[in-house]
């Protein structure tokens, strides 16, 4: 009788945890698996909502850079580093784009939003700094 009670308590607890904490834990685990080799994630917002975050990024020269550009805004944004010939194209609201490239030259490179996203669109830019190893 006592064993039965214990078993039922355990089963209930496991079920409840699986249905409450479960999805959150699964989300975090899967997300960290997907982002395991990202150099950085840049989120895109119109300038009046906070602009790119981060707006300044430093990476070592000659190493592969993997960026995820995640549009958390309600309009289309873009991401491009023209000097490095890197372009994510249009990134729709709620979508993400992953970019891979290897910068070969030390320097500071501007990245820009390529889609007219707001009246402050021209301020939507940031800097990728390529540093010595």
């Amino acid at each position: 009788m006592k064993i039965k009670v214990i078993v039922s308590v355990i089963v209930s607890a496991v079920l409840v945890l699986a249905c409450t904490v479960g999805p959150i834990a699964a989300t975090l685990i899967y997300e960290s698996y997907l982002t395991r080799d990202l150099t950085a994630e840049i989120i895109t917002r119109s300038p009046e909502k906070g602009n790119y975050s981060p707006r300044f990024l430093s990476v070592p020269v000659g190493e592969k850079v993997k960026l995820r550009i995640r549009n958390v805004d309600t309009v289309v944004h873009g991401f491009a580093i023209p000097a490095l010939q890197v372009d994510a194209g249009e990134i729709k609201a709620g979508h993400s784009v992953t970019l891979e490239f290897t910068p070969e030259k030390i320097g500071k490179y501007d990245f820009y939003c390529t889609v007219w996203c707001s009246e402050h669109h021209l301020q939507m830019r940031g800097v990728l700094e390529v540093t010595a190893q």
């Binding site: 079920l15 249905c19 409450t20 989300t27 549009n71 958390v72 805004d73 309600t74 609201a93 709620g94």
Partner: peptide
Amino acid sequence: ILINMLVFMIILTSGIMGGFSSGNYS
């Protein structure tokens, strides 16, 4: 209810993570 709660936990998580982002992709 428990299965439903699982779905609602995903809804709540996406809500709190989604902030003011686009509702039609939330």
